[in-house]
């Protein structure tokens, strides 16, 4: 019986210690949140509690003006359609280039597939760096050199996308079977041929699924970069807001367009991704 008592005591002590650590961690977290909130509140131009009352003023102004001019709203939305197309184009081109670069980098950085196995850590590091650089940094530098417009935003987003997709792709590559690659090698295929014919067919659905997810993220990024001067719907939004009261229907039109685009792309891509992952399973089971 003393054995059990010892075990019981040890267990209770362990639990107590765990609870203590958990409690301490929670206390630190709560203190950080509270302290952080207070600091942010103090350094903000308007206070939190004052702002909370005014939070609906701007949306209310926009909505009332939009309702007032409801009959011209579709026309206004149509007017901003080209800017929206530009934003979507930026995201699409950046995703395509990013996926292309990501595929190459990911293969160079996967064990078993790499062209130069010794350089794997190098390519991984390159992807890490590309992923870490925030888009706005590259966009602002390029706007200075190239002038405003969609291209700086596109390059900035593509750069980040290469790193982000490269990492996800290389995780997919690790699960690819090496048998087709070996088979192709035995008949004398070059590295590029081995990758395109041996690996790509295995991983294409997963690649596509990740690329779609990235496209979704890139639309948001491209809209937000427009706000700092890179063209597209974000730029128009900045102007519409700067005009102020009387032109809020323009802002409303842009809000609606942006919201609809994001929701539609979101739904479409999640449906497609579902099809890519589950549809195949069903096909195989049937």
């Amino acid at each position: 019986m003393p054995d059990i008592e010892i075990i019981h005591d040890r267990y209770m002590e362990h639990t107590r210690r765990k609870r203590l650590y958990g409690g301490m961690l929670l206390a630190v977290f709560v203190a950080l949140m509270a302290g952080g909130f207070m600091t942010a509140d103090a350094r903000n131009a308007g206070g939190f509690w004052d702002g909370l009352g005014a939070i609906f003023d701007f949306p209310a102004g926009v909505i009332s003006e939009a309702v007032e001019k409801a009959h011209t709203l579709p026309a206004t939305m149509l007017e901003y359609l080209p800017a929206l197309v530009e934003t979507v184009n930026i995201a699409a081109v950046a995703t395509l280039i990013g996926a292309g670069g990501g595929i190459v980098l990911s293969m160079l950085a996967t064990r078993g597939l790499a062209r130069w196995p010794r350089a794997i850590p190098l390519f991984r590091r390159i992807m890490d760096v590309m992923r870490a650089v925030p888009e706005i940094v590259i966009a602002l530098v390029l706007i200075f050199v190239l002038g405003g417009g969609p291209v700086p935003a596109m390059i900035a987003i593509a750069f980040h996308t290469i790193g982000a997709l490269g990492k996800l792709f290389s995780e997919v590559n690790e699960n690819a079977s090496l048998k087709p690659v070996e088979g192709l090698e035995s008949v004398g295929a070059r590295w590029a041929q081995r990758m395109v014919l041996g690996v790509m067919p295995q991983v294409a659905p997963n690649y596509l699924s990740y690329a779609l997810l990235r496209f979704e993220i890139n639309i948001r990024a491209s809209a937000i970069l427009g706000f700092v001067g890179a063209g597209g719907i974000g730029y128009e939004l900045k102007n519409a807001i700067a005009w102020g009261i009387g032109r809020y229907d323009q802002a409303a039109a842009i809000f609606i367009l942006l919201f609809l685009t994001i929701v539609v792309v979101d739904q479409l891509s999640s449906h497609l991704r579902d099809l890519l992952t589950h549809g195949r399973k069903k096909e195989m089971l049937a």
């Binding site: 942010a40 702002g51 939070i55 937000i224 974000g234 939004l237 979101d266």
Partner: peptide, 23 residues
């Protein structure tokens, strides 16, 4: 909440709270 992008939230909120980290 997700569809109304961070861009729109930022614009709307900065009207109420002014510039700063809290916004």
């Amino acid at each position: 909440l997700r569809g109304t992008d961070a861009l729109i939230w930022t614009v709307v909120l900065s009207r109420a709270f002014g510039p700063g980290p809290l916004t």
